[in-house]
Simulated assay, not measured.
Amino acid sequence: MIKVGIVGGAGYTAGELLRILLTHPNAEITCIQSTSNAGNPISAVHTDLLGDTDLTFVPDLDTSIVDVIFLCMGHGKSVEFLTENEIPSHIKIIDLSHDYRLEREGNDFVYGLPELNMEAIKSANKIANPGCFATAIQLALLPLAAAKKLSEVHVNAVTGSTGAGQKPTSTSHFSWRNNNVSVYKAFSHQHLGEIKQSLKQLQNGFNEPVNFIPVRGNFARGIMATAYVDCDMTQEEAVALYKEYYKNHPFVTVSDINPHLKQVVNTNKGILFVEKHDNKLLVISMIDNLVKGASGQAVHNMNLMFGLEEKTGLRLKSVAF
């Protein structure tokens, strides 16, 4: 059994990790740290787990009882935690924040998008889990970059309110978000850096704009991204390109019909739809922002790091209605 520790156990991503790992056949949760909830039952915060676990939050991580640590804190907190705490080298680390996603001197984390870096993930000791928008958008663009056919990109993507985290804000509480949509961080979203980094990894020298308009949706979870680029392929050629790229990636499906968001919510799936319009190629990409866009992808990375079959513990079904 893989002994799992979670640091920052009270938020949405930690709650999703617990939901997945409690039924994972090869994982045992041994330590869930939360400074603000130390001593409280897990189910007092993650109420969906009432009756599923008797675990309680602890104030400090005990590294003697873990094989892997998931860092589920706010951006900037992972760097702070790893600076202040010496983690034994045999313990694997999966960070779900933004702190280690971008390449820089001294950063020894592997960027954990399995559909891009699977082999590197298998031998890694530290993983920087991708962002939710970044995951959906990269899935839409990786095959084009791999084929050296990527040009200027235009993306519009809408996300559920859980993407803003558990702490209520003026744009995430129900009375504001319900029956409402709005644009934020147009052309300047923090996930653009990791998206461009990955595209350059596949298409050396790619330096075209990625024009990204993020939208706050009036629903709780899920991301629908629509991307379009100039493209000289036929629709049949483009669909074949995408199906070939993802043929060995079990969580990504290239659909022959236009999908809808309920097909991915509560699952680790990514569903793509490719359609040609004159000289434009439209790619629709859908994921659950908390699962494939965060905690499910983190468990997928854990499976790869420990040599397990990729879908272990992640055969999750969507809610159709």
Rank of each mutant, 00 (worst) to 15 (best):
N207V: 00
F206T: 06
G270T: 06
R104W: 02
H46Q: 10
V183L: 12
Q201E: 09
A44I: 00
N40P: 00
S175I: 07
M305C: 02
T56E: 11
E244W: 01
E208A: 14
L142I: 15
A227V: 10
D54Q: 13
N303L: 07
V264E: 07
G11Y: 05
M305P: 01
A320S: 13
H90K: 14
E84S: 15
G165T: 09
G5A: 10
Y184M: 05
F81A: 10
P250Q: 08
G9Y: 11
Q201C: 03
D278V: 11
N125A: 01
D67Q: 03
G313E: 09
A164Q: 12
A164R: 15
R315L: 13
A240P: 01
L71S: 01
T234L: 05
K317Q: 11
N156A: 12
N156L: 09
T159G: 15
C31S: 14
R101D: 02
D278W: 09
L113I: 04
G76R: 11
D256V: 11
H260W: 03
N180L: 02
Q297E: 13
T30Q: 11
Q263I: 02
R216V: 00
K92D: 05
I127G: 02
D54I: 03
A146Y: 02
I29E: 05
D108R: 10
Y100V: 09
V181G: 10
A136F: 07
S89C: 00
N37A: 03
A146N: 13
K262M: 09
I6N: 08
I257N: 11
G131F: 07
G205L: 08
S123V: 13
V4Q: 03
C231Q: 06
V66Q: 11
H189Y: 04
S78D: 04
V155Q: 04
I93A: 08
E208I: 00
N37P: 00
D108N: 15
T47C: 04
N179Q: 13
Y184C: 01
R221F: 00
L21V: 04
F251M: 15
P130N: 05
K122L: 03
F57S: 08
I6F: 05
N204F: 10
N248S: 14
Q138A: 05
Q203E: 13
L290T: 15
A14G: 03
A44F: 08
H154I: 10
N301W: 02
I6M: 05
D48N: 13
E309K: 14
D95M: 07
L141F: 06
W176T: 15
E80C: 04
N279F: 03
C132D: 11
A44D: 14
Q33S: 10
S97N: 06
L241S: 09
Y242F: 15
M224D: 08
I20K: 07
D108W: 02
D60C: 07
N301M: 02
I213T: 15
L96S: 07
A186M: 11
C72K: 03
Q138R: 13
E194F: 03
L308I: 01
L71K: 02
F306Y: 15
